[in-house]
């Protein structure tokens, strides 16, 4: 049961962090980062399985592979940005958190540009 391990890691981190926050804030942020990365790596094999299955369905659905890849990228960016924002918030760096969020939004819109262009082209080509 991986979820038990993950929750156990989380609880241990909370206990360590609650003590360290009082004495050593820098170390607390680092430990928080390490715990997050640890949990993330524990679920990576599962994510690869999910992506394989989704790719198969996407192939059958006739969606262009480029679009599916873009969606995966965007979801990944959202996750990573979320990760950074939370970490920044933990370190009381709200300014950095906002910047990360902004960057993520810009990158997401940038990646979605080909999709938007394709959609506009499609709609225009329907017009007689």
């Amino acid at each position: 049961m991986e979820i038990v391990q993950i929750v156990a890691i989380g609880i241990i981190c909370i206990i360590i962090l609650s003590i360290l926050r009082e004495t050593n804030k820098d170390l607390a942020v680092i430990i928080s980062l390490i715990a997050s990365i640890l949990i993330f790596f524990m679920v990576i094999p599962k994510i690869s399985n999910i992506i394989t299955v989704l790719n198969t369905i996407a192939d059958k659905s006739g969606i262009n592979n480029i679009y599916v890849k873009t969606i995966f990228k965007i979801i990944g960016i959202a996750y990573i940005a979320e990760f950074g924002v939370q970490l920044s918030n933990d370190a009381n760096e709200k300014n950095i958190a906002t910047k990360i969020e902004l960057a993520a939004k810009i990158i997401i819109v940038f990646l979605s540009l080909p999709i938007i262009i394709a959609l506009v082209d499609t709609i225009v080509s329907i017009m007689p």
Binding site: A81, E82, I108, I115, L119, T122
Partner: peptide, 29 residues
């Protein structure tokens, strides 16, 4: 499935829009 994968944050609405656009293309084509 894509919507399930989106992290529950401020990013959610942006990702949803892109997924929606892709689905529109796939249906219209």
């Amino acid at each position: 499935v894509f919507e399930l994968l989106i992290p529950s944050s401020n990013m959610k609405k942006y990702v949803k829009v892109v997924i929606g656009l892709t689905i529109m293309i796939a249906i219209i084509n």
